[in-house]
């Protein structure tokens, strides 16, 4: 029964990773870049919600709705100031620029909020603690279910958006051939900015869940980035549906790994990620002949 419970908890955890990874997947899908500050933006979103909770005493979920527009604006600004310029400069530049940005965000958060750990759990109401004991070894938490539901709605909604709406087609067209998209009247800069804004918004949602599920501090970002990237790679880069499944696979690997040894949880996820990379890009042969 413990293994069934571990898998179930893994699915809930994985749904959280999928939400975190969603924006990373969107930006890679549309612009072929990985934003190394993605995790830090999620944490920044959590702090934005945290500040509103502190100031107003509102529930974390309501505070999130207020902070969301700010994060969307931030996404636009990020695209127009940093990413747009880096896109034109080759494949390494976006990585270098966003890595620098990641350090900036982490340390600005340190300055603003001290290195103390924070949580949104206390301000999210009963959803944090409510759960149903199905059998003695199997419990379903309300929060886990909520995150899973939101993840499914988010990915389903995005899928519909991309396949049914003209704005979605414009995004796919730009992703497939930005030059040709411009020639049929699509403003690729606007599409990119929209994609980044969407990515930052979903990162903020990931940050909200991070804050409710557990705790965060100014340097939580890199870990979130690694988990999000692992989810994207496990699910297959460039596929949104894959990212949802990849996140869940990562979550299950971690909770099942924790059954073997508590310290093995994160390791199991890393190993799954590396195994997927080896299988996908495998066939490497060591040539012992000198170069």
């Amino acid at each position: 029964m413990t293994i069934v419970n571990a898998v179930l908890q893994g699915i809930f955890l994985g749904a959280f990773y999928a939400v975190l990874a969603c924006g990373l997947s969107i930006m890679f899908g549309v612009m072929r870049i990985i934003n190394l500050a993605h995790g830090d933006l999620a944490v920044l979103g959590a702090y934005a919600t945290f500040v509103i909770v502190e100031q107003t005493g509102a529930s974390a979920l309501i505070a999130f709705v207020v902070s969301l527009p700010l994060m969307i604006v931030l996404g636009y600004v990020l695209q127009l100031t940093v990413l747009e310029r880096s896109l034109k400069a080759g494949i390494l530049t976006p990585l270098l620029a966003t890595f620098g940005l990641s350090i900036v965000v982490q340390n600005l958060l340190q300055l603003a909020f001290s290195p103390d750990v924070r949580s949104l759990g206390g301000s999210a109401g009963t959803i944090t603690t409510a759960s149903w004991q199905v059998t003695s070894g199997l419990s379903v938490s309300a929060l886990g279910l909520l995150v899973l539901l939101v993840a499914v709605l988010l990915f389903g909604g995005l899928q519909l958006f991309l396949s049914r709406t003209r704005v979605g087609w414009m995004m796919r067209a730009t992703a497939e051939d930005a030059d040709a998209a411009e020639l049929v009247g699509i403003d690729s800069r606007a599409v990119y900015a929209r994609a980044t804004a969407l990515a930052v918004a979903t990162a903020a949602l990931g940050g909200l869940f991070l804050g409710i599920r557990s705790v965060f501090d100014p340097v939580s970002g890199p870990t979130q980035l690694i988990f999000a990237f692992e989810a994207v790679v496990i699910g297959g880069m460039g596929s949104l549906r894959g990212t949802l499944l990849g996140g869940i696979a990562l979550g299950v690997a971690q909770t099942v790994g924790a059954q073997i040894h508590p310290q093995f949880a994160v390791m199991a996820g890393h190993l799954l990620f590396l195994a997927v990379l080896i299988v996908r890009f495998g066939g490497a042969r060591l040539r012992l002949r000198p170069v």
Partner: peptide, 29 residues
């Protein structure tokens, strides 16, 4: 290098990061 060099750009960058994390966890154990 056998598999890391198969990766490009972000996959290589973060792949190496994860490898560093794995080695760090092994040391910690």
């Amino acid at each position: 290098s056998l598999f890391a060099l198969r990766l490009r750009a972000a996959q290589f960058a973060i792949g190496m990061w994860v490898i560093a994390e794995v080695i760090s966890i092994v040391v910690r154990l």
